[in-house]
Design a protein around this nucleic acid. Structure first.
Lengths: 334, 334
DNA sequence: CTGAAAGCGCTAACAG
DNA sequence: CTGTTAGCGCTTTCAG
């Protein structure tokens, strides 16, 4: 079924049907109603492949997130879709599972589909993909970090400063032997920045460092529990652990409970992202709050503005972060 | 940049470039290498809008999941993509947030994009969408439930039997006053089935029922905690609560701890899905295990087979479920 | 406000 | 194994 079938039934030309669908204000009410009736009667669904090929616009934004295991991206995605839908744009979602080649495949696919904009997590991407993006001229926004050399635009927060601030907070609460758990650092600039902030804070505060104080745990409660167990066994004098993901931090709290380690008395635990689980833990989780809804909405707005031909006022937007002290760490001295 | 530019640089015709990209076995090695060199040199990315329009195949499967807040779909998505990628297909992901009209919009968009297959969660869909799907002739598979009247094909498990089995298990462990928390039932046949299984089990076992024993909590730990609190306040004699989502059940365990209610001694808690968090809880969560990876992989395989023109052997596949008893419920009598 | 002609970039079908 | 021809179904001009 084609636009022509609808046109015939409605007694108009194909272009009038097209206008009814896409720019209904250019069609007089009566014609429009007749066309709409024909569309409904036939159950006609326009072929967007053809439409986009002719118009060179898809009204689709491609987003590649790194994981579905952390529900934190749910909020960013809502921020983006809320903004995009209002403007008549759609989101196409890819999941990379933190693999650079999977991200590349998604981006290539997006470019092949001729999306009108692309959103990626972080600043580390395949060299060729970067080139392809630049060459294609599509607006690109990188999120979740402050990228030093963005492909195009960027909205996020400083993972290094956030990590630095949390470690300083822990030290202020009296913790001295502080461990760190992040997602793998390979091709992940957020994890790299969080480690850098941690190291810088330890150095500045004169706190002890050892390789055995650092561990790795992607996204899940179980992995956080294991990371906690392993770091504790290597560092019997550990007195705080900062896991830069709330699920993992929740896992650490649970593992502590299982071992009879008191939190925050024996060991303080801190997380990152202010996910919903943190507030519910017993004790509630001290964390870094970041602003994911705002970040998603801003990313969408920046893309839309660039699509409309304008340059955004700030190519790099910092949405900031806050330290949220809760019961999983000792209170700071008054 | 078009295929013609590549063809000119490589000294061949456009169709040879096309064949190099899509059916490389029909091109002799030497030609293929020359074409590939030209492609790489130019950074050419084929326009799939044009390609799919001409070939009437997109090699894209559309999937609409209900939420990003539960990470349980991550596993299903992996099962699907692992299978699809091998066959050269891609997944396009939509999130409905359990709203029928959002699901409809995604399906319409998929149909407009001319996806080669569609996968939906559950059996309740907009009437017009159902019609559009049928009319379009695209293969459709519904997952996460055993749908009585599938649009086309279905792979899932019986939510009613699973719920029934869990309630019987709880009764067998000596619990009498058993409450239930599900996601909202509106337009959600999984929740409806879980309630039906619960009611049927209570009736069959002669256990007491009251409206106040039933609560609602979508997907999050916090909502599970609140649902637990509210049902307990209405039913001081409550001795078990079955929350049909592991995050919510985890929230109930945490809320119990906060209130000094002992689990499983005072109250037994059970969940659904066997998400990673359940094993880590203290006590570990009794749950219903379902097989999400297998379900995703099977759904993908069924779609691919139908795309290849074959009828699948079974239009409805049951991947089953298992009751996993853990520490959050009392052991059954020996 | 509506229509006619031309073309978006690619691939199916057929030829050689 | 490679090329030619003829569209895929829509929208962009440009007229009226």
């Amino acid at each position: 079924m084609r636009i022509e079938d609808v046109a015939r039934l409605a007694g108009v030309s194909p272009i009038t049907v097209s206008r009814t669908i896409n720019k209904s204000d250019q069609v007089v009410e009566e014609t429009r109603r007749a066309v709409q009736k024909a569309i409904d009667r036939l159950g006609y669904i326009p072929n967007r492949l053809a439409g986009s090929l002719a118009s060179t616009r898809t009204r689709v934004i491609g987003l590649v997130i790194s994981t579905l295991y952390s529900n934190i991206f749910a909020i960013t995605v809502r921020g983006m879709t809320d903004t995009l839908l209002t403007a008549g744009y759609q989101l196409s979602l890819g999941v990379s599972n933190d693999l650079l080649e999977v991200e590349s495949a998604h981006v290539r696919s997006f470019l092949g589909q001729r999306v009108d904009g692309v959103c990626l997590v972080g600043g580390i991407h395949d060299r060729l993909v970067r080139r392809a993006l630049l060459q294609s001229g599509v607006p690109v926004v990188e999120i979740n970090n402050l990228v030093s050399d963005p492909i195009d635009m960027c909205v996020g927060y400083s993972n290094e400063e956030a990590s630095f601030a949390m470690v300083r907070h822990l030290a202020n609460c009296g913790y001295r032997r502080i461990g760190l758990v992040t997602a793998p650092t390979e091709n992940n600039d957020r994890s790299q920045a969080r480690r850098a902030g941690y190291r810088r804070a330890l150095a500045q505060l004169g706190l002890p460092f050892a390789d055995s104080l650092i561990g790795t745990a992607p996204y899940t409660v179980a992995q956080g529990a294991r990371a906690f167990a392993s770091i504790l066994s290597l560092n019997p004098d550990l007195d705080a652990l900062f896991l830069t993901q709330d699920n993992a931090a929740a896992g650490a709290i649970l593992e502590a409970k299982r071992r009879g380690v008191r939190v925050p008395g024996d060991i303080g635990i801190a997380g990152f992202d202010d996910a919903d689980i943190g507030q519910e833990m017993v004790p509630a989780l001290t964390t870094v709050r970041t602003h994911h809804y705002e970040m998603g909405a801003t990313a969408a707005r920046m893309l839309l503005r660039r699509i409309d031909g304008g340059a955004p006022p700030h190519p790099v937007v910092d949405v900031g972060f806050e330290i949220i002290p809760r019961g999983s760490t000792r209170p700071p001295p008054a």
